[in-house]
Amino acid sequence: MAADKPTIRWGIIATGLIASWFAADISIPRPDAKANHIIQAIGSSSYDKGKKFAETHVPGKSPTIGTYEEVFANPEVDIVYIGTPHAFHKQNCLDAIKHGKHVLCEKAFALNAAEAREVFEAAAEKGVFVMEAMWTRFFPLVKSLQHLLHTDKVIGEVKRVFCDFGLQQDIPALPAGSRLKDPALGAGSLLDIGIYSLTWGLLGLGQQTEMPKIVASQHLVDGVDVASAVIVSFPQGQQGILTSTTFAKTPRSFCRIEGTKGAVVVEGFVASAPASYAVHLDGDEEPKKYEFERIGKGFYWEADAVAVDIAAGRKQSEVMPWAETIRVLSILDEVRRQGGARFPMEG
Rank of each mutant, 00 (worst) to 15 (best):
A73G: 09
N112P: 06
R30V: 13
D78T: 06
I82R: 03
A123I: 06
I39Y: 04
D78P: 05
I82T: 07
D48N: 12
K126S: 11
A23H: 03
P29N: 12
K51C: 11
L104P: 00
A116L: 03
T67H: 11
F53D: 01
E76R: 12
A124N: 09
K49M: 12
K90V: 01
V58L: 12
G60V: 10
V80F: 04
C105Q: 05
E69F: 14
I42K: 03
E69L: 13
C105H: 03
Q40A: 15
N74K: 05
T64R: 15
H37W: 04
C93P: 09
Y68N: 10
K34T: 00
R30S: 11
A113E: 03
P75I: 01
A24V: 00
A41P: 10
S45Q: 15
A23S: 14
E106V: 11
A124G: 15
Q91L: 07
A35P: 10
V71Q: 02
H99Q: 13
A133R: 01
I38L: 06
E121A: 15
S27R: 08
F129V: 13
P63Q: 01
Q91D: 14
I39H: 05
V103H: 00
G50F: 04
P59F: 09
D78H: 02
T67G: 13
A33D: 13
A116Y: 02
A122I: 06
T136W: 05
K51Q: 14
Y81Q: 09
D48T: 13
A133S: 14
Q40Y: 00
D25A: 12
V119Y: 00
Y68P: 02
Y47G: 14
A23W: 04
A113W: 02
K34H: 11
H99T: 12
E121W: 13
D78L: 01
K52A: 15
I82Y: 01
H37P: 08
T136N: 08
A110V: 00
N112F: 05
K49H: 14
H57K: 07
N112C: 11
N92Y: 02
P29W: 06
A87R: 01
H102R: 03
R30G: 08
S44R: 00
G100A: 04
